[in-house]
Nucleic acid binder design. Structure first.
Lengths: 342, 342
DNA sequence: ACACTGAGTGGAAGCCGTTCCAGAAATTTC
DNA sequence: GAAATTTCTGGAACGGCTTCCACTCAGTGT
């Protein structure tokens, strides 16, 4: 394997000049640059990643930490981050917590090995000690999905989303509106789901509509679980809501399938609205609020790389809201009034 | 930041001994080891990843290359690989081609920087030049999803899967069976889809059943596209097949939704079978062939790490078949015979 | 007692680029 | 045309850990 010394020798210059010519740092005469580059390509020279990282202290490598790769939101965001990093010539090191299974391992062992230039942490709720731990490593972090004290963050306005979705249903004339979201309590992760639930509750309260415990479902964000919950919810005709606001499109799809299996007509007998912008929603005719997951990924990368630019000074960590888009499809409509239509 | 020299000094030994004590290579007296480890933890010492990689030539880092992170099969396999790598203390560097968009970049720039101990290439069809390129980097590769000349591989028996799925439908009494799969031609990727299609065609031929061009659909493996294709296929009642074999569960789901939107009863008027073992299949009642994507990921890691063990000698690259499991649910049944049931 | 192991240790030479420093060469300035 | 810059260049010192080599010393065998 050819090293930079070999290149230098063949080009008739010193390793120092060869290094400058190849990296573009420092000034090199046109002739020397030409000689070096052609020597390098002749030898098929590829610089040693580790040697250069050791010498410069930068690794052109960003870590992405998330709780589940195989959930739509995360994998889509990851795809966006991957594209942006690749365009910038950065590697992406993936850390999938798999719930909480690898939480300690990632936080303790992996993140601290001084091998990443920066970290993007998605839907990750850190406690004080963990924040300290990461900041002590001295690498920039961008958090996605919730406020992370002392760090740059990107997030959606979850109470706003919950409110918007709920108000859409209310404006259609619904009064019996259920919600399927994540856990109530402030857990280890960002309280996305809580945020959306809060928006739902506020919108209901503002409209003077009743909240019922039975209509406030907690799910693990999977289609299957939402299906099961919705089926149970909808089984009792008397207690049945006329609309469901699900905190994700996958859960909304579960609700839709449950309704179908119960023989309910959509949207006449049940309106459903989700959040995400999942492609599947097109086919299902699902009304949703697109949160542009892919763009969240690219945006997180942009902000992280901005912090990594040589000149860049530690701007105070800003909290940035990402845009969303309301998409009305055929899963929501005015409630079907038996009396009127007969 | 404390370096190993600081640890050595505090422990009263040389850096050489400190290194041996911490890495476990070479012999160190119990007393020295004790002194070093306590000095290390007192100083909060974390070894420099790049320095150690440079010195040893190994980086405890494996690359995973795949065409789409946000497709069920790939993200599930990735999750498995991630878990296995994390357990072994390895980092995972992700390269998502995003179709072919980053193909050249990944192959040319990233893979060759001597920064990975090994590579797992999923559903990646390499041409001769590319194989040579990768092998020239001298790092072990495990291919998943198809035979890769000269490399260790893991794959499903796709013709067998296609045959099994088709024979299931035939044994139920179907004769009008359509297939939705990937592209016919040998593309840049593994010919999974082609393999499954071949199995389908063979099974049909063996049973003396007719193949029709109109019943052989090519899709891009997304739910939405399969939905569109199936809707078109099923629209014409006269030409309609009584069963569809889809090469993936997401496509099968698309077909199911299309059938539902056309008012067809499942499985009476249409049987559908998929391949994957997607969780969503439980709710849809989808008959499928589970290919244990997650295990494919862990297995690929196991085989790769076996090659990385110090002692391990380059065994000849074996081609390994992964198991599958047939799961019968409610989306397949005997065809509904109008004449008989009236 | 005497040569013979083998565990344990420190010194120093790597691994392979990058960059500081100082000096040489080419420009520019007046 | 001399002085002042600016551009280029090579030597050498890093970056931080690992490991080869040589050597000490305690334990083994006879």
């Amino acid at each position: 394997m050819a090293g930079i010394k070999d290149v230098a020798r063949l080009a008739g210059v010193s390793p120092a000049t060869a290094s400058r010519a190849l990296s573009g740092n420092g000034s090199v005469s046109a002739r020397a640059r030409q000689a070096v580059t052609s020597a390098a390509s002749e030898l098929g020279f590829i610089g040693s990643y580790h040697a250069s990282s050791l010498a410069t202290g930068r690794s052109r490598n960003v870590g992405v930490v998330l709780p589940y790769v195989n959930r739509w939101y995360f994998s889509t965001l990851l795809e966006g981050a991957n594209a942006a990093l690749m365009d910038a010539g950065y590697d992406l090191t993936l850390y999938d917590f798999q719930g909480d299974r690898y939480r300690e391992t990632v936080l303790g062992d992996f993140l601290l090995r001084k091998r990443l230039d920066g970290v993007i942490a998605v839907s990750l709720q850190l406690n004080e000690h963990e924040v300290k731990q990461i900041l002590s490593a001295g690498i920039p972090v961008v958090g996605v999905g919730g406020p992370l004290p002392g760090m740059a963050t990107i997030r959606t306005d979850d109470p706003g989303i919950g409110r918007q979705a709920t108000e859409h249903l209310i404006s259609l004339g619904h009064t019996r509106i259920a919600h399927i979201g994540g856990e109530h309590e402030v857990g280890r992760y960002f309280k996305i789901s809580t945020g959306r639930r809060v928006g739902y509750e506020e919108a209901m309260a503002d409209a003077g509509l009743p909240l019922r415990d039975a209509w406030s479902l907690v799910s693990d964000y999977t289609l299957n679980d939402a299906y099961a919950q919705a089926k149970h919810l909808l089984a009792n005709a008397a207690e049945r809501p006329t609309a469901i606001f699900a905190a994700s499109d996958e859960m909304a799809a579960g609700a839709l399938l449950a309704a179908r299996d119960l023989g309910l007509r959509i949207p006449d007998e049940l309106s459903v609205i989700g959040v995400d912008g999942h492609e599947m929603g097109e086919v299902l005719g699902l009304t949703t609020i697109d949160q542009f997951a892919r763009q969240q990924g690219t945006r997180a990368v942009d902000r992280l790389l901005a912090q990594l630019k040589p000149g860049a000074e530690p701007t105070e960590p800003a909290d940035e809201l990402v845009q969303t888009r309301f998409i009305v499809r055929s899963s929501t409509a005015a409630p079907y009034i038996r009396a009127r239509s007969r």
